[in-house]
Amino acid sequence: MILLISDLHLEQERPDITRAFLHFLQTRAVHAEALYILGDFFEVWIGDDAISPFQRTISTALRELSETGTQIFLMHGNRDFLIGKAFCREAGCSLLNDPTLLELPSGPVLLMHGDSLCTRDEAYMRMRRILRNPLTLWVLRHLPLSTRHKLARKLRNESRSQTRMKAADIVDVTPDEVVSTMRQHGVRTLIHGHTHRPATHKLEIDGQTATRIVLGDWDRQGWALQIDDQGMRQSAFSLSD
């Protein structure tokens, strides 16, 4: 069994999500061969050297899970793209490239965070190219912590205000980009997060049926996609269970 989750946006201000996640690790993930976290695991991450006691609680829980035999894979999101190798070593997880091909008995599956598919949001895509540039990443990691905290708050506030102002189709994936990406990687199944719109979409690529699964975000409820011998099933659950 494999589990996939995304967009938990873990932060100290949401203890309900944290409690639900720790419970999820202890009751479901502990029985899985692998757990894939497809981005925006944390609400904000300003560098491995700035890990807080709260974030260390999460890394400890992941390490404990990994020691039971469950493999943990973590992909960067648009909120936590500064997570580095030091955190992963501490948490017992492996960083995934975005995108990544997951080989299953039923065929290859493409895993993505999903923000790179939102090409109609031209302002965001410009900012993404700047922030993900290796030189920018180096500079960000070497800024004083106080500066990084201020910059993170600024980007976070701007992102929230701009998202509220943009049309729904602008902040969703671009259909043509989805088809192009799936065709490029030779897959008929794509799994991603980012848009906070959990659903299973059927589409056609070169005359063949294809599937795009959008993982749900953890806010009013939690979401997890389970892959096993019975297929793929995404389900929601209460954060208070």
Rank of each mutant, 00 (worst) to 15 (best):
L117W: 11
L117A: 05
T119A: 09
T119W: 04
R120C: 02
D121V: 10
D121N: 11
E122N: 10
E122W: 01
A123K: 12
A123P: 06
A123E: 14
A123G: 06
M125R: 13
R126G: 04
M127V: 06
M127S: 05
M127D: 09
R128C: 09
I130G: 06
L131M: 10
R132K: 10
R132G: 11
R132F: 14
N133I: 05
P134N: 00
T136C: 05
L137C: 13
L137Q: 14
V139H: 08
L140K: 14
L140S: 09
H142T: 07
L143D: 01
P144Y: 13
L145F: 04
T147L: 09
H149C: 08
K150I: 07
L151I: 07
L151Q: 03
L151A: 07
R153C: 08
R153Q: 15
K154W: 15
N157W: 11
N157K: 14
E158N: 13
S159W: 13
R160T: 04
S161H: 12
S161A: 14
T163D: 11
M165K: 15
M165L: 15
K166W: 09
D169Q: 03
I170Q: 05
V171Y: 12
V171F: 11
D172Y: 14
V173P: 00
T174C: 15
T174H: 15
D176W: 07
D176K: 15
E177C: 02
V178K: 04
S180A: 15
T181W: 13
T181H: 03
T181N: 03
R183K: 07
R183V: 03
G186D: 00
V187C: 01
T189C: 05
L190S: 02
H192S: 01
G193K: 00
G193L: 01
H194M: 06
H194L: 03
T195M: 02
T195R: 07
R197W: 06
P198Y: 00
P198F: 01
T200C: 08
T200F: 00
